[in-house]
Design a protein around this nucleic acid. Structure first.
Lengths: 176, 176
DNA sequence: AGCAGGTAATTGAGTCCTCAATCAGGGGTA
DNA sequence: TACCCCTGATTGAGGACTCAATTACCTGCT
């Protein structure tokens, strides 16, 4: 192994600030949702994904792919959401191994109730802090990171194959 | 409560990409550290903070403040790091309630061994994906988020008071 | 001195995650 | 049909975190 490509002083500063910022931001939003709506952010996003799906239902593995979540995590999550009455499981007639996760009316109502506080928190802690230029830059940066992470994430690959995504032919520069 | 300030289409796109990007990035780095060095990212950062402190030691509450961590979390973490032999606790002679967390030689060695793989992962998944301009923008964005989050985070306030920080007198614009 | 209230740190229960193991059912081939 | 392997989903154990309660000690007041 050769000498690692250490971060420069500036890079280190950026990384530390970025790392701290996203950690605190996530903790802040997690706390807000947990406190005001009694659900973790992950569960909120599961409800959102279901609410946007056709008939407000998705197969477990589709849901996992959309959310870039492991099946195990999702299984636990849906079990808990089912206990809360926000999601219902239905077995799949065409594939007996399969299961649908279906958003219940109570789940939809819980989401409607949680949403305003959540978006307000997102706005207040993120968008209000940034200029329009910075917001645009953040969009590009996020897209670049996602692009970079895609081949490294099995769940992402599965999600895209399900959606008919075709990977670009160009090689990622190995830049080392 | 008035109508919430919903996100515009563009904002929503940015938020979803950003949220997914940071979640995947953290998961990626967490996995890398856990896999190659057997420690979660939080513990890695605890070791880093100790390694940079004078005599490689900090009081538990100082460490919590530096890391923006709850005392409870830190207590659990240090207990586990102690079990691994990477950190040692010493009771404080001047304040019998207090405790020092001291980085052991084994802990320092573990950090030295973990560092190259970790910075390589950070470089590969973050810096290699961004142009120098984007890196600079990300630095500014992160600083703005941190600034915004500061008054909302009790741990941050405590940390800054410990460091002699004086909050600016200006009001945050309520921008509603 | 004696006490009240605050601070340092830990503890335990409960939640959410990961990982590996498991169960159950498809789908191709001989 | 019988077999094998792959896929969909769940389970349980163990780790990391949160929140609330607790212990131990300091400090200022009377």
């Amino acid at each position: 192994m050769s000498e690692p490509r250490w971060l420069s002083g500036d890079e280190q500063q950026v990384w530390r600030d970025f790392s701290m910022a996203i950690t605190m931001l996530q903790a802040h939003l997690e706390g807000q949702l947990q406190h005001e709506s009694g659900m973790p952010h992950t569960y909120y996003e599961v409800l959102v994904s279901l609410s946007e799906a056709e008939d407000r239902r998705l197969r477990m593995s589709e849901l996992a792919a959309v959310r870039r979540s492991s099946r195990s995590r999702l299984s636990h999550a849906v079990a808990r959401l089912e206990a809360k009455g926000w999601v219902r499981r239905e077995s799949c007639p065409t594939d007996k191994r399969g299961a649908w996760a279906v958003l219940t009316d109570e789940g939809f109502a819980a989401l409607e109730e949680a949403a305003p506080g959540h978006v307000e928190a997102v706005r207040e802690s993120l968008f209000d802090a940034l200029s329009p230029t910075q917001v645009a830059a953040l969009g590009d940066i996020s897209a670049a990171i996602l692009e970079r992470l895609r081949p490294r994430c099995a769940a992402a690959v599965a999600a895209e194959e399900a959606a008919g995504f075709v990977a670009p032919v160009v090689e990622l520069p190995k830049s080392g």
